[in-house]
Simulated assay, not measured.
Amino acid sequence: MIYREQTGDSEQVDCARPDGGCRAVLDRLADLKRGEFGWIHLDGPDQAELEELSGHLGLHPLAVEDAVQAHQRPKRERYGDVLAVALRTLLYIEDGSEVETGEVMVFLGPRFALTARHGPADPAPEAERRLRTDPGTLRFGPAAVLHAVLDVVVDSYNDAAVQVRADLTDLERCVFSSARDDVTEEIYSLKREVVEFRDAIQPLVPVVREFAASRDGWPEGVLPYFRDVADHAHRADTEVRSLDELLNSVLDAHLARVGTWQNDDMRRISAWAAILAIPTMVAGVYGMNFSHMPELSWTYGYPLAIGAMAVAAGLLYRAFRRNGWL
């Protein structure tokens, strides 16, 4: 995409890739006029493709390696005239309450922006739409692309935080409901997703703050835009920290309830064992078949023994019911 900074117009350049190359884009970048810059977006680029571009755009080999491997924490690095920024993308899958992460590397040069995306989420289409909607930001040059991509990524963090909050609320209802459902696995699964979420947002917050007070030669007019993104990133970070702490509390509360359920079960078992112990003891005594035993030959001995066992068991049952054991 070739942008004209003053008018906000853009020109789409098809990128045919013979032998892994991108000659059409490189030729167009070489013909850029004053007030124009190019944005190249690559989806899952390989080593050869980025190495070819790096020779024309002046990308550092370490930056190319980071863009290919796609296992970087959010960071910013400057290699001469090129600024390299690593971002983590998020895609929240509502059906399974899962957070899938990816990565976007953004390279900014004097007259170009290069984004390399790995993973399921692609912020480039939405970033391009926002640039078209607000073409006035194009006067900031390639920094406008970085702002648009950052803005889309951080907004996705806030959207994912809202969805995680809803899932957490559902888990809270399950934990404190009267039903005895074991949701330990669901809580732990959501906790794992929040940790992955936290690892994506927390390192990004100081990086965005640096852009909000940048000394990279950017015009002063672009700084408020980055401060706005920094505020959104701080809000997302605060929300994720809150979700993490709430999940710990919900897990502790659920484990406490599970322990209470186990204690209730043990009390019920103990109460019934005590109730059954009396008839078992009496029947055991009379089952020893001694010749001389009380009331052994009495006509009403059997009904009396059965009645005594029933009365004793009934009294114990009543006592346990009053104490809440049954």
Rank of each mutant, 00 (worst) to 15 (best):
V99F: 07
A113D: 10
V99N: 08
T89N: 12
A116W: 03
V154H: 05
T101C: 06
H147D: 01
Y92C: 11
E94D: 13
V195E: 06
W218L: 08
E126T: 08
P203D: 11
F112A: 04
P110Q: 13
E210R: 14
Q202G: 14
S177E: 01
D151M: 03
F176N: 05
S177W: 09
L138P: 02
G136W: 03
E186F: 03
R130W: 01
E196T: 15
D216A: 15
V175W: 07
V145G: 00
A113L: 03
L223F: 13
Q163P: 00
A127T: 05
L171A: 04
T115M: 00
V195N: 04
R139I: 05
E185N: 12
A148L: 03
P135R: 00
V183I: 12
V152L: 02
V183W: 06
A116P: 11
E100W: 15
L168I: 09
S178L: 14
L171I: 05
R111T: 01
P142H: 01
D216M: 15
L146P: 04
G217F: 00
A212W: 03
E103F: 09
E126G: 00
E172T: 09
Y225H: 14
Y225T: 11
D167L: 10
K191G: 15
P135G: 06
D170C: 00
F140T: 07
L190K: 02
A200S: 11
D199K: 15
R192C: 08
V208R: 07
I93K: 15
P142E: 03
V106F: 02
V175R: 07
D182K: 01
V205C: 06
V205L: 13
V194W: 11
F112P: 09
A160Y: 11
G109T: 09
A124V: 09
R129G: 06
E186Q: 08
L150W: 10
D155S: 08
I201A: 02
G221M: 07
A213M: 14
